Computed example of a mutant assay.
Amino acid sequence: MKDFSAATFGIVLALVVLLGLNCVVIINPGQAGVLSVLGKARDGSLLEGIHYKPPFISNVDIYDLTVQKFEVPAQSSTKDLQDLTASFAINFRIDPVQVVEIRRKQGSLQNIVSKIIAPQTQESFKIAASRRTVEEAITKRDQLKADFDDALGVRLEKYGVIVLDTSVVDLRFSPEFAQAVEEKQIAEQRAQRAVYIAREAEQEATATVNRAKGKAEAQKLLAETLKEQGGQLVLQKEAIEAWKQGGSQMPQVLVTGEGSAPIPLLFDLKETIGSKKG
């Protein structure tokens, strides 16, 4: 009889413990729970702490409220009808106030990503890409991202998803456009080279004109000097400088002509003597 009473007590105690475990749920920090009784979600999310729940007929779904990160691909056409493909890394978290509605309409976190975030990312990228050409999408990438962020934030907010940050992981365009960009860069480099050569030729032509003008001014000044008294001295000096620069031997005899403007006449004494002997 005592053994039966002990066994009964053990069974009752086990049932009490089991009942107690099924009557409470512990929600950890960074989590939120949704209580469902007989398959129907109750209003009001369960935040961190200990909460009571009806035993055996209820269930609590736990949602992670910490920051989640998923990479989502997207594809669109630009304003100039060029194909543009991108991949976005999206940081988000679930709004704890709307956890119950998320449970009722979307279900699990995986459903939120596949059924809400992925398609809304695609639509938001279409909006951002359609506002600019493919070249603008590349050169003004920050503006493309800003338009995408605005569109995605508005669309996901009504689903209880709060977008914290996005980043463009990859941005690709068609091979045809890539080739066109390369050809344009080559053409621009050639054009810049042509402009440089034209400027260089223009500067050389200007220098040639300036040199010609300087030479003409020098000749004019020399002519005016020769007209003045004492110009023969200039001629004599130039003749002597010419001998020095030419490396020829200095003449043995220097005879000046007669008249108002004598011109220096140069004779090699040795050659003159030799001609007389002959």
Rank of each mutant, 00 (worst) to 15 (best):
F4I: 10
I11F: 10
I11K: 09
V12I: 14
A14S: 12
V16G: 08
L19P: 00
L19M: 14
N22C: 03
V24G: 05
P29R: 10
G30L: 01
Q31N: 14
Q31K: 15
L35C: 13
L35N: 09
S36N: 06
L38M: 10
K40A: 02
L47F: 09
L47A: 12
G49C: 06
I50F: 11
P55S: 15
N59G: 04
V67K: 10
V67E: 14
Q68P: 00
Q68M: 13
K69E: 13
E71V: 14
P73G: 11
S76R: 11
S76A: 15
D80F: 07
D80K: 08
D83A: 10
S87I: 12
F92L: 14
I94P: 01
I94W: 04
I94F: 02
V97I: 13
I102N: 07
Q106T: 05
N111C: 06
V113H: 01
K115S: 12
A118Q: 04
A118M: 08
P119Q: 05
P119R: 04
Q120I: 03
T121N: 11
S124D: 05
K126N: 05
K126Q: 14
A128M: 07
A128K: 00
V134R: 02
E136G: 01
I138E: 01
T139P: 00
R141Y: 02
L144D: 00
K145A: 12
D147R: 01
D147K: 02
F148V: 04
F148L: 15
F148W: 04
V154S: 07
L156D: 00
Y159E: 08
V161W: 01
I162C: 03
L164K: 08
L164F: 02
V169S: 08
L171G: 01
S174Y: 08
E176M: 10
E176K: 14
Q179N: 09
A180G: 06
V181M: 14
K184G: 08
K184Q: 15
A187N: 10
A187G: 04
A194P: 00
V195R: 10
I197H: 07
R199L: 12
E200S: 09
T208W: 01
V209F: 03
N210S: 09
E217L: 15
Q219M: 07
L226V: 03
K227N: 13
K227M: 07
Q232I: 02
Q232E: 15
L233Q: 12
V234S: 01
L235K: 10
Q236T: 08
A239N: 04
E241F: 06
E241P: 01
G246A: 14
G247R: 09
G247W: 15
E258Q: 15
L265K: 14
G278Q: 13
